[in-house]
C-alpha cells in the first residue's frame, strides 16, 4: 500500500482529492437517498390518500369526464343532458307529454319492432358464422347448428321467433297508427315510409324462409316466386308477357331466382338479399322514419280531442257548401 502511495506520490494530492471527491459524492448520494426514502415515507402515503379520495368519487376522474360530458346529480338539467348528449338516446326529446308514456296509447309496438330488428341482427350475425349458402351444405349447417353448436338451437329458434314476432309487431304498430289517426297532417310522409318498412319486413322474413333449404322453405318460396311468373308484362305467364317476348329464361322470376328453378343461385340470392341488401335498405328507411317522427312534432298524441265545430273548412269547400 505504501509503495503504491510512494509510486504515485506525485499524484498523491490528486489521489487524495479523488478519495475526498468520492467520499463527498458518497455522502451526497447517501443524503439524497436518505431524503428520497424520507419523502417516500411522507409523499407516497399522501398521494395514496389523495388517490383513495379520487377513487371514492370516480365521476371526477379524467377518464370518466372524458366519456360522460355532464354530472349525474338528479337535476332537471342533467336529466335533459343524459338524453341529449347520448348518441343512442338523442332520438328522444328531453321532455315529452306526460300522457304519451302511457302504454295504452302507443302499445309500444314501434319500439318493440325496432328492438326485435336489433335482436335479429345480433342473432343473425352469429348464425352467419355457421352457415354456407350452398346446396347440401346449407341444410347440413342447420343440422350442425341444431345438434353440435353450443346454444345453436336456441340461436336459431330465437332468430325465427323474433322474425315472426316482428311481423306481428309491425302489423299492430300500423293498426295503432291508423286507429289514432296518426297518419294525418303533418305525418303523411312518415306513414308512407312506414308502409315501405312494413313491406321490407315481410320481404326480410320471406327471403330468410328459404335459407335452411328444407322442404318447408323450398316449397314456400316455390309457391311464392311462381306468382312472379304471372306478373303482367314482365312474367312469361302473365298478361301480355308472351307478346313482349317473355320466356322462363328472361322474365322477372328468372331475375329473382337467378335461374328458372329454385336452386343454388336462388339460395345465394336469397341469402344476399336477406343478410345484406334488405337490411341496409331497411336501416336507411328506419333512419328516415325515426328522424321524421321527431321532425313532425314527436309522436302524435295522446292529443286533446277536437270538436266538429272547431274544424276550419277550406275556402273552396265553404263556398261549395253555401252554393
Amino acid at each position: 500500500m505504501a509503495e503504491d502511495n510512494n509510486q504515485n506520490g506525485q499524484n498523491g494530492n490528486g489521489n487524495g482529492g479523488g478519495v475526498k471527491l468520492l467520499s463527498k459524492m458518497r455522502t451526497k448520494v447517501l443524503a439524497g437517498v436518505k431524503e428520497d426514502v424520507q419523502m417516500l415515507k411522507v409523499d407516497l402515503p399522501a398521494k395514496a390518500k389523495e388517490q383513495v379520495e379520487l377513487v371514492k368519487d370516480p365521476t371526477k376522474t379524467q377518464v370518466y369526464t372524458s366519456i360522460f360530458r355532464h354530472k349525474h346529480d338528479d337535476t332537471p338539467r342533467n336529466r335533459a343532458l343524459g338524453v341529449l348528449s347520448n348518441v343512442f338516446l338523442h332520438l328522444h326529446p328531453a321532455k315529452i307529454n306526460r300522457d304519451s308514456v302511457r302504454y295504452s296509447y302507443t302499445w309500444g309496438m314501434g319500439g318493440i319492432t325496432f328492438y326485435l330488428f336489433i335482436v335479429l341482427t345480433f342473432t343473425g350475425v352469429l348464425l352467419m358464422f355457421y352457415y354456407h349458402p350452398e346446396k347440401v351444405q346449407a341444410f347440413r349447417d342447420v343440422l350442425y347448428l341444431e345438434h353440435d353448436v353450443p346454444f345453436g338451437k336456441l340461436l336459431r329458434n330465437m332468430h325465427r321467433w323474433a322474425a315472426h314476432l316482428m311481423v306481428i309487431a309491425v302489423w299492430l304498430h300500423m293498426y295503432r297508427v291508423f286507429l289514432t289517426g296518426s297518419y294525418k297532417k303533418p305525418r303523411e310522409f312518415n306513414w308512407n315510409v312506414g308502409v315501405i318498412l312494413l313491406v321490407l319486413t315481410l320481404l326480410l322474413s320471406f327471403t330468410g324462409y328459404l335459407l335452411p333449404d328444407d322442404q318447408l322453405g323450398f316449397w314456400a318460396v316455390t309457391v311464392g316466386t311462381n306468382m312472379a311468373r304471372a306478373t303482367p308484362l314482365l312474367g312469361h305467364e302473365g298478361p301480355f308477357g308472351h307478346q313482349l317476348g317473355m320466356t322462363p329464361y328472361n322474365d322477372i322470376r328468372f331475375g329473382l331466382l337467378g335461374g328458372s328453378i329454385v336452386d343454388a343461385n336462388a339460395l345465394l340470392r336469397s341469402y344476399i338479399w336477406h343478410c345484406i341488401g334488405i337490411p341496409i335498405v331497411a336501416s336507411l328507411f328506419m333512419i328516415v322514419h325515426f328522424w321524421r317522427v321527431r321532425k313532425d312534432g314527436g309522436i302524435s298524441g295522446p292529443a286533446p280531442v277536437m270538436l266538429e265545430a272547431e274544424v276550419k273548412e277550406p275556402r273552396g269547400a265553404k263556398a261549395a257548401a253555401h252554393a
Binding site: 341444410f139 343440422l143 336456441l154 336459431r156 329458434n157 335452411p212 328444407d214 322442404q215 309457391v223
Partner: peptide, 25 residues
C-alpha cells in the same frame, strides 16, 4: 318461446317430392 318450442325443420329440399299442402309463410 325459443327454449320451449323448436323452429321447424323439414327434410332437405327435394324438387321431386311436392309438399301437400304447400303453404306460403
Amino acid at each position: 318461446w325459443s327454449i320451449s318450442l323448436n323452429a321447424p325443420l323439414e327434410e332437405p329440399s327435394n324438387p321431386n317430392v311436392t309438399m301437400n299442402p304447400a303453404k306460403a309463410p
